[in-house]
Design a binder for these strands. Sequence first.
RNA 1: GGAGCUAUAGCUCAGUUGGCUAGAGCGUUUCAUUGACAUUGAAAAGGUCACUGGUUCAAGUCCAGUUAGCUCCACCA
Length: 755
Amino acid sequence: MDKIYEHSLVEEKIYKEWEEKGYFKPEVHPDGKPYCIILPPPNANGDLHFGHAMFVIEDILIRYHRMKGEAALWLPGTDHAGTETQFVFEKKLQQEGKSRFDFNRQELYDMIWKYVGENRGGIENQLRRLGFSLDWTREKFTLDPDIVEIVKQTFRKMYDDKLVYRDYRLVNYCTRDGTSFSDLEVVHEEKVNPLYYIKYGPLTLATTRPETKFGDTAVAVHPDDKRYQQYIGKELEIEDVLGKSKIKVIADESVDPTFGTGVVKITPAHDFADYETGKRHNLPMKQVIGFDGKLNHYAGKFEGLYVKQARVAVVEEMNKKGLIEKVDEKYVSRIGVCYKCKTVLEPLPLEQWYVKVGPLIENAIKAVDNGFTKIYPENFVHILKQWYAGLRDWNISRQNVWGIQIPVWYEVVNSEDFSVSFIDSKRELQKGTLKEMIDKGFSVEEIVTGLQKVIAPITAKIVFEEQKEKGKTYLPETDTFDTWFSSGQWPYVTLKTAQKGDFEKFYPTSVMETGYDILRAWVSRMLMLGLYIANGKHETDLEKIKNTVPFKDVVLHGLVNDPYGKKMSKSKGNVVNPLELVTQYGADAVRFALVYGTGLGNDQAMSYGKLDASRKFTNKLWNMARFIEMQVKESGLSLTEEMKHPAAEGEDLEMVTKTQGLIKDITKFIDAYQFNLAAELLYEFIWHTVADKFLEYVKVSSNKKQSLTILYDQVFRDCLKLLHPFMPFVTEEIYQRLYPKEAEKTALIISSWPK
RNA sequence: GGAGCUAUAGCUCAGUUGGCUAGAGCGUUUCAUUGACAUUGAAAAGGUCACUGGUUCAAGUCCAGUUAGCUCCACCA
């Protein structure tokens, strides 16, 4: 054996051997108890970041259960990550001087497919380099045809069960990315937004958004506000930027009399609160901002200006006309921005698909309350339930191409009600109502072929593919599902499609291990959707809920930050590629450093100190093995023959007893998801009890042969096994060298867990 | 506005049914050693476990409150 452990000579060779011999497949223990973890699918749009290395926790669990003789399945996969991937890809297009408006849906989809295909290989390579014992023969992708089919069926079922519906309401819309978002995806930023006090006839009101005034359909005051009693219910005639106009005064409880002047303009089409107020008072919705972020014809001479420009222009005009009483220039408010591109989101009215969350949440909470799904650390139960409690219906429509198209068609009765955009056969972008396009001479077929986007009226009749009747005209829904709608079904769809019989054997899965940051976005959705699809319907029977949870345990790890404790992000330039560290320190050291010294669910700062200590530990282990090998040869013991266990006594017996205690402790810690304690104890025991004390004792023992045998044949082998889930490469390499005869039969990875 | 997390050695952090004489890594100091070990070993210094109360035979650990930092959620013009 070399004097120094050289991970670069070992890791690739060992991983290849494991994989080729099929050790990652649950079939190595065909009769074992099923144990299953589904890998949280990384986004297939780039490299893994360092946080992904935390999947080591899953590998520890899988290796441990595999060694216990269970049929352990760790199923890999990647996620198409609709909005994010399209964002990344469009940036790339932009660099080439193109945009998505140059392509029809199919062309764009095919291009992204190719791009993503290239990325997926890189991700797989990273996961292998970290030593993850994933069953690659079962790898899945969220856009695999069989998965897409199931996701569409789920939607269909939910439609029949009235758990999804289409509605026309305000959505958070990014005019740059051209898509809406769910509430969860909106990021709020604090910004200085001047507060303008504007005269509306005899009244003055305060607003940060004067440019939306063209969409006002009322002004509101609090019903008890004494200052304005004489106006309630009246229609005011006011002088406005576009000349004289009329506006109604309503009374609504939601108005805060202490804010501004106690008067507020109501713009139902462009403000969430106003939308609600508008519904209570039956106010018309007047959309003055388009999906391109520009003002439309209602804005008169301001038509065509972007919101930002329009605000300046409108204020200027109002100043000229003396309509502005005062301006609070320093007013700070929090506004929603796009989580990807940081563009200010516009609340815009749009026809969208929603999931009715009530019944699904009810069952998810039952699963958690009854302990059918347990969450570690426990405090996340409260976070989850609190989120469920305030959850509104879930907008699952995304105006993206990259994703699973919502599988419905709309019957065209009046072609004036439909607006379309498409690339015609001459590769020109066409936009307008369906009627205008047909009048221009385009056939419906040509339109559908080059389609980019259809907006169907909320009243349109909805049919599925096979329900289309001959002689009628239909346009497809162009929106795709929110990525979380498909990944929310991940445990179900993967096991249904990976290999025949997997679902029956492995569902419900044993553990879902992921970062706590996606508890709401992902784990919560898997619980909601998983219970529903596994039962095929909304089920209230507790026994059925128990048997259909997508996972029995949820284990949440913390974030890995940069060495200074700051969140790693591309924009800050402090992202560390896990592969660089694996190359430098070895996979075992990287894995160990991530687990050592961090309690479950706590964030950690990446630490070069811990990496170094871990790497030294691999070297220590290596040299312990080297010492044992030499001693065994010197003393005439055999490396190939099974030894007879001598009756231990004295120091030897004590060592055996201590090792047995260690086995109990490590087993207990892993079962309780206390990986840090297991790692710390192993480090302490192997280095300071075995190496510093017992190994030194063996050198001077009066019965050296017996002491050495205890060390070689009991203590050290057990240590290797206990350490293997944490440091798989170095332990396997040592095992094969030190115990060649056993290793010939069963590699360490599939050997038995010590008892 | 609501919730959660964190506060322990110079630094980074463990310490999960209360039993601690409070630990690790790195750093610091002293000594030893070419040894199985890009060293490693033996030892040392260093902590009123944020603060104040409470429960208990016993509190770093449980409870209440205070302070500070971080994070998340909801978002009113």
